[in-house]
């Protein structure tokens, strides 16, 4: 309807049929574009709701009573914000102890990986030595070997070394990783050799070059590595339940998994515990989200 009225107004201004036709096509294109955008944003918003709702529901549930969580029909908001759930969860989970264990283990693994992976990247990417490429291929071939294959021999090794129920049992088997070395090597190919040669001519040793030139220039890849090693180590459950049988040594994922067994009917405590477990990750994510998403796109690292 409106199209025909505007059409007549156009025709009084521009009498040629050709111009009218063009205007109509342009209008159709614009309408189609708007329609397309509506569709795209509809899909995006629907997806956003799907992605965000579980987390929001968890947060709200962590303040509810058990009865409110299992109310029929659904009760979305808590009638009263029960902060006490958190107090109780912290006690039941021995939260601060467990959180501290997780923080120590994860930090050690992360810091170690930053240094070992850049060390490996430098050794295989920048140093020139006979046999380098063969040795690197040998390391790279272990990327095809999934962790579970060596799970049991590694457990036996750690047990025989007397590292059960200790931080070292959680840290030492994870000091470096093939993928991290591969990633830093690829990154370091971008560091100009001239810089390194110049430093060598000036009398720097290989170690000096690593410390004073390669390391400072590798900050972007170190950030990417740090984020993903942290995220992965923070979430490890399988190795933890194998190595740590002593409650006081437990990490956060073990304590969370245990909530399901120990507090199987206390949903509010389960949700409070889950919320507590994700807080550090959320903080990390909000602080570094630009680096994270760019890092994933560049490296394809999986959290």
């Amino acid at each position: 309807m409106s199209a025909t009225t505007t059409d007549t107004s156009v025709s009084t201004l521009e009498p040629t049929g050709r111009a009218r036709q063009l205007a109509a096509i342009r209008r159709l294109r614009a309408l189609r574009w708007i329609g397309g955008q509506f569709f795209l944003w509809g899909v995006i918003l629907l997806g956003l709701v799907f992605m965000v709702t579980p987390g929001v529901w968890m947060l709200l549930a962590s303040f509810k009573t058990q009865a409110e969580i299992s109310a029929i029909p659904l009760q979305f908001w808590p009638t009263q914000w029960r902060v006490n759930n958190y107090v109780e969860t912290i006690e039941v989970m021995k939260f601060w102890r467990v959180f501290g264990n997780s923080l120590i283990i994860t930090s050690c693994v992360t810091i170690a990986n930053i240094f070992t992976c850049t060390w490996g990247g430098y050794t295989f990417g920048k140093l020139r030595w006979p046999g380098r490429d063969i040795v690197f291929m040998l390391l790279l071939s272990t990327m095809m070997i999934p962790g579970f294959l060596t799970l049991i021999p590694r457990y036996v090794l750690v047990a025989k070394l007397g590292m059960l129920n200790s931080y070292s049992g959680m840290i030492i088997p994870f000091l470096t990783g093939t993928f991290g070395i591969f990633l830093t090597k690829q990154f370091m190919l971008g560091i100009p050799d001239e810089l390194i040669d110049a430093a060598t001519v000036d009398g720097s040793s290989a170690l000096g070059v690593y410390w004073r030139i390669v390391l400072p220039l590798s900050k972007p890849i170190m950030a990417v590595l740090a984020i993903f090693v942290f995220d992965w180590a923070w979430d490890d459950l399988l190795w933890g339940i194998m190595i740590l049988t002593d409650r006081l040594k437990w990490t956060l994922p073990i304590a969370i998994a245990n909530l399901r067994v120990q507090e199987s009917n206390q949903y509010e405590l389960q949700m409070a515990g889950s919320t507590l477990a994700i807080i550090p990750v959320i903080i990390l994510f909000l602080a570094l989200q630009r680096h994270i998403v760019r890092g994933v796109a560049l490296s394809g690292l999986k959290g």
């Binding site: 579980p54 979430d235 956060l252 994922p253 969370i256 889950s274 990750v281």
Partner: peptide, 10 residues
């Protein structure tokens, strides 16, 4: 990024 353990519980 969120821990699998917490999400599985949720």
């Amino acid at each position: 990024m969120l821990p699998m353990t917490a999400m599985a519980l949720l």
